[in-house]
Design a binder for these strands. Structure first.
Lengths: 326, 326
DNA sequence: GTGAAAGCGCTAACAA
DNA sequence: TTGTTAGCGCTTTCAC
């Protein structure tokens, strides 16, 4: 590994000059520069980012914390974030908190020890304190830290109302509203959409059943089981509101039991990733705009890294996607 | 940010002593150690990994290059790799090469400039030269670099034969064999399975149609379109062999056209991720064991980082998963 | 058992 | 315009 010192020696100049020539900032005579560049080429010199990082006290890496990639919403979000961060000059460190038993704490430590310049967290599992203790740059997706960490989320209130409106218009009499048990109360904010839905439906005299899914199982196997159980337990429901993969599971499990969708059961999914929009029949959905969410998250993050004080939250608009299930 | 120097000062010792006490290697008197640890706690000292990295000339980060996370095989693989790497003491840097327009080259440069200690590549897009130029640690998934970079892949020969055997036993007369155009020839090795399948079928007097998918589109929208087209184009096929999401698309598109699966069309998917195994009907599949693949990749990688010379390839066994589509 | 000093590879300030 | 020097924060000799 050739160092900048080697380059300077070969070119017959001081290493400060070599540094200026190669990095492009600072005065250096054209011919000297040429010599240095030639020497660098001959030695196939590459600057050691480890040294640059130490000096600048930044790594150029952003940590993304997600429960898992099994869930299509998270894999889409991560892919979008990686792309956006890259465009802004950052590399992405991936941290899945559910898959292994390993700790979120470990990943948070990377903030303290300068491994990452910032963190985008989309996990549900950990206690707030660990996050709030850190004075470095964190941005949250869909999780409320009592206004002490900036957050990005979808317009869940609107989503809940929109879903209710659809079920009502379709003449549903009893709707199953199912979501993660971690969003049941408190600061996982997708719960807002579900609570809003229940409230709206009840206000219109429509019966509501609520069920909750485990917060650390994201496999289709689990979702299929859960959907099957619910269909057995609630034989009289004619509507379901659930996140993408679970909505898909309801679709197949319902058909398999001879309950036609949408004739006997209307399904609306929340997330509306491309996955559920292209299978057949296409699932009707309220869409969380992942590209916008990613844009907001990375925008707030990079601005905070640059020193801006931002604590305001960002609510992303939701959309209706007409499918064939409601 | 308190540095080790601050800790040493507060404890009233030299910074060398503080370093030894905190890192645990080197002699230091118990009471001195206690003083230092106390000082560290008071200042809530955290070692700066950037400095440690520069000294050790390693970052503890592994780069994973995948085309995208849209495809369930890759999102599963990445999740598994992240978990395995974590257990081995490495962090994961995620690099999606298709999603953005940004270059694979950029990520390969990270090897040269010490940003990552090694790379696991599962991409299809780039020319071999860029990889072979690098003398740092690379391990490849399913891509042949003429024996110059160690590789892990599934037993594609066995997979092709197994699929053929199933189609034959089910009495198929014409099978559609569809896969990525990049695997058509050369070094994307999943092509072996498909070529083997075609060869076996033809040898048994069964007709084979081959089709190819784009190598940089992984969305369900695309797969659905493609499946639809094929079903229109080949009205007489009674068997399909395709990767997971595409197999799923064939399932829905076929049913939508009134061609019942498996009565009119037998489907076998290659990959057999959990996703296709749990929807209803469950898709019959030849399973690539992602956990084993990940284990082999990370094992070879870490051993090479430690200095072992490994160039032999690792073939992972495939499994049959009985579903309801063949 | 401990402190001082060198150095990882780089950049930036300061002289020359 | 260029070379020298001082660190970034840490670990590791090497004397004491």
């Amino acid at each position: 590994m050739a160092s900048i010192k080697d380059v300077a020696n070969l070119a017959g100049v001081g290493l400060g000059t070599a540094s200026r020539a190669l990095s492009g900032n600072g005065y250096v005579a054209p011919e000297t520069k040429k010599k240095i560049e030639e020497a660098a080429r001959r030695l196939s010199y590459t600057p050691n980012v480890l040294a640059q990082n130490l000096l600048k006290n930044r790594s150029g890496i952003i940590g993304i914390l997600v429960p898992a990639l099994d869930h299509c919403f998270f894999s889409r979000l991560v892919q979008e974030l990686e792309s956006d961060l890259y465009k802004k000059g950052y590399k992405t460190m991936l941290c899945c908190t559910v898959s292994g038993e390993h700790g979120e704490q470990d990943y948070l430590d990377m903030l303290e020890n300068n491994m990452v310049d910032g963190i985008i967290t989309a996990t549900h599992s950990f206690n707030d304190e660990a996050y709030l203790k850190s004075n470095r740059v964190i941005v949250s997706f869909d999780r409320d830290f009592q206004g002490r960490i900036p957050m990005v989320r979808s317009d869940h209130e609107g989503a809940g109302r929109m879903a209710a409106e659809r079920f009502i218009r379709q003449g549903c009499r009893k709707v199953l509203n199912i979501y993660g048990e971690d969003a049941k109360e408190g600061h996982i904010l997708v719960g807002i959409a579900h609570r809003e839905l229940s409230a709206c439906l009840k206000a219109s005299g429509i019966e509501v059943a609520e069920e909750y899914t485990s917060q650390d199982r994201f496999t289709m196997t689990y979702y299929s089981e859960k959907a099957g159980e619910c269909l057995e337990k609630y034989r009289d429901i004619d509507g379901v509101f659930a996140s993408d993969p679970l909505a898909e599971a309801f679709l197949w499990e319902s058909e398999r039991r001879g309950r036609k969708v949408p004739r006997d059961l209307k399904i609306i999914s929340y997330d509306g990733t491309e996955m559920t929009g292209s299978i057949s029949p296409r699932i009707s959905a309220i869409v969380q705009q992942i590209d916008k969410i990613s844009g907001n998250l990375t925008d707030i993050l990079t601005r905070r890294i640059r020193g801006e004080e931002i604590i305001e939250d960002k609510i992303t608009e939701i959309l209706w996607r007409q499918g064939e299930t409601c």
